[in-house]
Every structure is written in structure tokens, then in C-alpha cells.
Computed example of a mutant assay.
Amino acid sequence: MSIIVWIVIGGLAGWVGNMIMKSDGGLVKNIVTGIIGALIGGFVMSFFGATGFTGFNIWSFVVALIGSIILIAIINLFTGRRTA
């Protein structure tokens, strides 16, 4: 069950992150971006003393979204893409 939660939350967070950062991507890219973003977001939140990805709830979505935005910004930095 937890892998399904990671895929659903990751897909949604990756999709919203791509919309915020005005990036393009398909379903698989959104899911991968969201899952890696959840890991990054969990690390960032633990650095600040907050809990990371905890399951199927709004907080986990926010953590994954923050991580997705950070990941997309890092990718754009290395690929030279700029957001409009």
C-alpha cells in the first residue's frame, strides 16, 4: 500500500511542481520527480526539525511539492533552462 501512496502523492506533487516551475513533462517524469522530491523534501524538513513524508495526507503532499520544486530548480540550473 505504501508504494501506491508514494506513486500517487509523487505524481501529484511532480505535476503541480512542473506547473509552478513552468516545466514540461509526462506522467512518468511527474511521478519520478515527485518521488525524488519527497525524498529531498523529507531531508529538508528533517534539517529544520519537522517531520517528512508521513503517508497519505496534506503535509506529505506539501513536503513532496517543496522537494519537487527544489529538484526542478536544480535540474534547470544544470541544464540552463530558465522559467518564464
Rank of each mutant, 00 (worst) to 15 (best):
K29Q: 09
A64D: 01
T33E: 15
G25D: 08
V8C: 12
I9Q: 07
L39N: 06
T54I: 09
T79V: 06
S60R: 14
M21G: 11
G52H: 00
G80W: 03
T79Y: 01
F47G: 08
S46A: 08
G42T: 13
G49K: 03
V32C: 12
R81T: 08
A38M: 02
S68D: 01
F43W: 02
T79D: 03
N18D: 14
T33I: 10
G37A: 09
F53K: 13
S68F: 01
V8E: 11
S23Q: 10
V28R: 05
F48G: 01
I40T: 09
I4V: 14
G11F: 11
F78Q: 07
G11L: 02
G67L: 11
G26H: 07
L39M: 04
F53M: 11
A73Q: 10
D24T: 05
I31C: 04
A50D: 10
M45W: 04
G41E: 03
I7R: 05
F78W: 03
G55Q: 00
M1F: 14
I3K: 15
M21Q: 14
G25T: 06
A64S: 02
T79P: 00
I58L: 15
L12F: 15
A38Y: 06
T83C: 11
I7H: 01
K22E: 14
W6F: 15
G10F: 01
V8S: 12
I3F: 15
M1H: 12
I66D: 04
V32P: 01
A38G: 15
T79A: 02
A50P: 05
V28H: 07
F53Y: 12
I35S: 02
M1T: 09
W6V: 13
K29D: 04
R82Q: 10
V62A: 08
G67T: 03
F53P: 02
S23Y: 03
S2N: 15
I72V: 09
G17I: 11
I74R: 00
F78I: 13
G80Y: 06
I35C: 08
N18Q: 13
A73D: 09
I4H: 00
T51L: 13
G14F: 02
G14A: 01
K22P: 04
G37N: 12
V8F: 06
I75A: 04
N57T: 00
S2Q: 15
G11K: 08
T83W: 11
I9F: 03
G52L: 01
I75K: 05
F53W: 10
W15G: 03
F47Q: 03
T79M: 02
W15H: 11
N57M: 04
I75G: 08
I9D: 07
M21R: 14
G37P: 06
G49E: 04
A13Q: 12
N18L: 10
V28W: 13
V16H: 13
F48E: 03
R81G: 12
W59F: 09
L65K: 05
S60L: 06
N76A: 05
N30P: 11
D24N: 14
I36W: 08
F56P: 04
G41K: 05
V62K: 01
K22F: 09
G42M: 00
F48K: 06
T51C: 05
R82C: 05
L77F: 15
